[in-house]
């Protein structure tokens, strides 16, 4: 479960949908792993405006990752001006969003307190029918 995906997942319960507390899900007892992938600058640039930076800060903080800058990086900051190569900001973002993932643990909804188990990187979002 990539950190990128964590920035989009909400509680699956219908009653939580409208409640702002249902996002982000808070990782608990999470085990992290780092999987190397190829960098895709255009994709990260496309995703930047869609990221919820406040949620990013909360989640990285709870995962014990280094602190993020206060503001969302701008699209210009992703490319090194002089060389046109990917900048350090882009590399950091790539390693955080695409390479860092939660291997196991729990995701907790702050609204209803439901815990979604994560095993081998797959989160279990199945709900018993009375909770849908």
């Amino acid at each position: 479960m990539k950190v990128l995906t964590l920035n989009f997942l909400t509680c699956a319960r219908k009653t939580c949908k409208q409640n702002p507390a249902a996002f982000p899900l808070h990782p608990k007892e999470a085990e992290l792993e780092q999987i190397e992938t190829d960098i895709n600058p255009l994709f990260i640039q496309n995703m930047l405006p869609r990221l919820d930076w406040e949620a990013m800060k909360t989640v990285t903080n709870e995962l014990g990752l280094p602190n993020l800058p206060l503001e969302t990086p701008t699209a210009e900051a992703l490319v090194d001006e002089s060389s046109g190569e990917p900048s350090q900001t882009l590399k950091d973002l790539h390693s955080l969003l695409m390479e860092t993932s939660v291997a196991s643990g729990k995701l907790v909804c702050a609204n209803c307190g439901h815990e979604y188990a994560v095993k081998e990187g797959i989160a279990n979002f199945l709900l018993p029918s009375h909770m849908v």
Binding site: L9, C11, A12, F23, I122, L127
Partner: peptide
């Protein structure tokens, strides 16, 4: 998992909704 695919996966029933924030 055995085939080592790149995407993230959720064990979820699509008939119970899609648990992602809008957009």
């Amino acid at each position: 998992l055995e085939r080592d695919v790149e995407g993230d996966m959720l064990l979820a029933d699509i008939g119970q909704g899609v648990p992602f924030r809008p957009g």
